[in-house]
Design a protein around this nucleic acid. Structure first.
Length: 739
DNA sequence: CTCCTTTGTCTTTTT
DNA sequence: GACAAAGGAG
């Protein structure tokens, strides 16, 4: 009896097929991670491959850690020598060793999306390009797309001669890239692009890695883009032992440049490739799987396959359309409570939604009911202002060329250095062709500065001081020097608002992170710490031993599974999103459908689908039809009756049919915004309290109404709360209850 | 230079 | 509603 006996025939074929290119088409829940880990074990134990010669690329750090753990359990030794990482971390690791060969300093900084925006904004200002006409989002999108396709600024310019918009973007792209280089910084895309460049211009470096990485495996291959593909195929060119695993039906990152042809054309590119399909699903019940199959069947561009399972039929899929998003949240939470009483652990239940914004209403209910939960994604911890400020200090200490970081902190906390002064220093730096930080150090040379020069010099001296601490002390000591030496902590401590308290907590949390890093890393350095922070995804921190209900977007849920899954907000306009409904590109709706497929197949035992008839979106009441995807699930798989909560206050007025089935069969586009407005949720808004009444609020607790003003379509109510003081809010949002 | 208020814009998904 | 930019007062 060997460990391989537990695999099915196709899985075993995949494990034993170790030489040459291999394309593994692995449907959802077909045990691809099992195959990958067993394949690695087989390579090490049976073929005698040195773990050092194996590389596995995963999508998230969490998946990487998990894979290592599972291989470790199988082989018992050597797994720590396997190179398991994400694309981005792998590239950083290579670049930290060799990037000086292509003209960067090895202490480069990694820019996140916010940093990118700042650079684009600056560049556009300098080039005098109107940001109304060229929103930074779309400019960055174009740049990122170009990078994904390995198009350099000059190539981009040549390809777009004579096209006004594109040539403007080309100018921005060129300047943007120059700026990054000057700051000794790379954005996320650059990590890949620069590595490929390094390999192109320095084949000797490429060869080092080719010689080492004899067996390469890529997980979630359907979501790779052109640079990533180039990177991998360069590495694999020598030994050609490239195993890619993916499912074209789960390709959900086209917006990020994922190139589905990487998987669809793999056999054309690697002619000798073996192709193995894994179609038996071990995860979900028959009902769930059937629903998933029926939905995905509506897509045109896909490889033919049909997942099957030996699992039992299981319970039908629950579907409810509720009145509002609040009702929906309430009922979902009720069910979670019920299940928990029946002995289902919280961590076995997950709520999935299309957009992060949908988490807010749910979170409020969780707080109210005191059910443990964890929200993945959304506002990243590391993008909070106070955390970014402190990190900017650390970045400046690590890489003095990072002008962006310097400018962020030069007046934080307040040092009396205003915009005028900063511009003068920036101009001087530009004329002298030096970094902003170096210009600060020479502030006495800038005649126009006058008295401000001393303030700038003090700042430069302070950074110098921190550098000394960094050179001699621990990271925690450095952290303390920065937070205390700058007065950042004292300022916050002096302020006793709720907000300041929250900020202090976040700074504390950052200290925890740094302490933890310093304890666990073999050879902790400031650079590595910053890098680790730059490359973590929020899912990475998901600890599945915690007994909490998990809330996340469908995108984040890829690769995960839960016994009980709630798919909320299944409405046309939300999922599929309004943007894709409006798009002329038919592929967009197919991508949404794949996302739906991913969502459905996360569930092992039972799936709950729900929608709201109307909900507040962007500050307006929106009336949505049930998602077309729900319509694609055969009725026989759905349970529609039990516990339906149709609290329709006035059915006569209702423009939505009370019959949910009829509703979902109507053409989707007939809903008009004007009609929705006529219902005037706003104009009919009324409140059952008045000035002087005591009311209670979900978050703020008890308070007294001090003012009530009728606005255009809503009441504006001001309440003096016992705990948090005076707040002004709209009655329809506040949901105040008279006590 | 700083702080406050007002106004306008934008709303998908993320390494 | 969330946030950034702009405008205005001290």
């Amino acid at each position: 009896m060997s460990i391989y006996d537990t695999l099915n025939e196709q899985q075993r074929d995949a494990v034993f097929c170790t030489e040459g290119p291999l394309l593994l088409l692995a449907g959802a829940g077909s045990g691809k991670t099992r195959v990958l880990t067993h394949r690695i074990a087989y390579l090490i134990e049976e073929i005698g491959v040195n773990p050092y010669n194996i590389m596995a690329i995963t999508f998230t750090n969490k998946a990487a850690a998990e894979m290592r753990e599972r291989v470790d359990a199988l082989v018992g030794f050597g797994s720590e020598h396997i190179w398991v990482s994400t694309f981005h971390s792998a590239c950083v690791r290579i670049l930290r060793q060799y990037i000086d060969l292509i003209g960067y300093d090895r202490h480069f900084t990694i820019y996140d999306t916010d940093d990118q925006k700042t650079v684009v904004r600056d560049v556009m200002k300098r080039l005098n390009i109107d940001k109304k006409q060229f929103p930074e989002r779309s400019v960055l999108g174009a740049i990122s797309k170009a990078k994904d396709e390995l198009i350099t600024p000059s190539e981009y310019e040549m390809q777009n001669r004579g096209k006004f918009r594109e040539s403007q973007v080309a100018k921005i792209y060129t300047e943007y890239q120059k700026q990054l280089k000057a700051n000794n910084a790379l954005d996320f895309d650059d990590l890949l692009v620069k590595t490929v460049e390094l390999f192109q211009f320095h084949p000797e470096v490429l060869e080092i890695f080719q010689n080492r990485l004899k067996y390469i495996m890529v997980d979630e291959y359907q979501d790779t883009n052109t640079v990533q593909f180039t990177f991998v195929s360069m590495l694999a060119r020598k030994h050609r032992n490239l195993c890619v695993v993916g499912d074209d039906d789960q390709s959900i990152y086209k917006f990020r440049g994922a190139n589905i042809y990487n998987i669809l054309n793999f056999e054309n590119i690697f002619k000798e490739a073996t192709v193995i399909k894994l179609e038996q699903n071990y995860r979900s019940t028959q009902n769930i799987l059937n629903a998933a199959n029926e939905v995905i069947r509506n897509n045109k561009g896909r490889k033919a396959k049909r997942l099957w399972t030996e699992n039992e039929a299981g319970e039908p899929i629950d579907f409810h359309q509720y009145e509002t998003e609040y009702d929906e949240a309430q009922q979902v939470l009720n069910e979670i409570e019920r299940k928990n009483r029946d002995g289902i652990a919280y961590k076995d239940m997950a709520i999935l939604y299309r957009t992060n914004a949908q988490s807010r209403v749910l979170e409020e209910k969780f707080l109210l009911k005191n059910i443990p939960y964890k929200i993945v994604g959304g506002i990243n911890f590391y993008s909070r202002k106070e955390v970014k400020d402190i990190l900017a200090y650390l970045k400046v200490i690590d890489n003095g060329y990072d002008d962006l970081a310097v400018r962020r902190i030069i007046n934080v906390p307040k040092r009396g250095i205003g915009a005028t002064t900063i511009n003068k220093v920036a101009n001087y730096a530009f004329e002298q062709e030096m970094s902003f930080m170096d210009a600060c150090r020479e502030a006495y040379n800038i005649p126009t500065l006058k008295s401000a020069a001393n303030k700038v010099l003090d700042f430069a001296a302070q950074i110098e001081g921190f550098r000394k601490v960094a050179a001699n002390g621990t990271l925690v000591e450095l952290f303390q020097a920065v937070t205390e030496g700058t007065g950042y902590l004292i300022d916050l401590q002096a302020d006793d608002s709720e907000e300041a308290k929250a900020r202090l907590e976040n700074i504390d949390e950052l200290l925890n992170k740094i302490t933890e890093y310093e304890l666990s890393a073999e050879n902790p350095t400031l650079g590595e710490l910053l890098e680790e922070i730059a490359l973590v995804a929020d899912v990475d921190s998901l600890d599945q031993s915690d007994d909490r209900v998990v809330l996340m977007t469908l995108h984040s849920a890829k690769g995960l599974e839960f016994p009980y899954v709630f798919l909320v907000g299944m409405e046309d306009g939300i999922f599929p999103s309004y943007m894709t409904l409006m798009s002329d590109d038919k592929d967009d709706i197919e991508e949404e459908r794949r996302l739906c497929y991913v969502g459905i197949t996360r569930a092992k035992q039972k799936l709950y689908i729900s929608a709201a008839k109307h909900r507040m979106m962007h500050g307006r009441m929106q009336f949505n039809k049930v998602s077309r995807f729900v319509d694609e699930i055969p009725e026989t798989l759905l349970a529609l009756d039990r516990g339906v909560n149709l609290k329709s206050k006035d059915p006569a007025k209702s423009l939505f049919s009370t019959n949910r089935n009829m509703e979902s069969r109507k053409p989707y586009y007939q809903r008009s915004q004007a009609k929705a407005k006529d219902f005037g949720f706003g104009s009919s808004a009324s409140v059952d309290y008045e000035v002087g009444d005591t009311v209670s609020h979900v978050k703020f607790g008890r308070g007294v109404v001090v003012e009530l003003v009728k606005g255009g379509r809503d009441y504006e109510v001001t309440v003096e709360f016992e705990r948090v003081g005076r707040k002004k809010m709209f009655a329809s949002f506040a949901k105040l209850k008279k006590v």
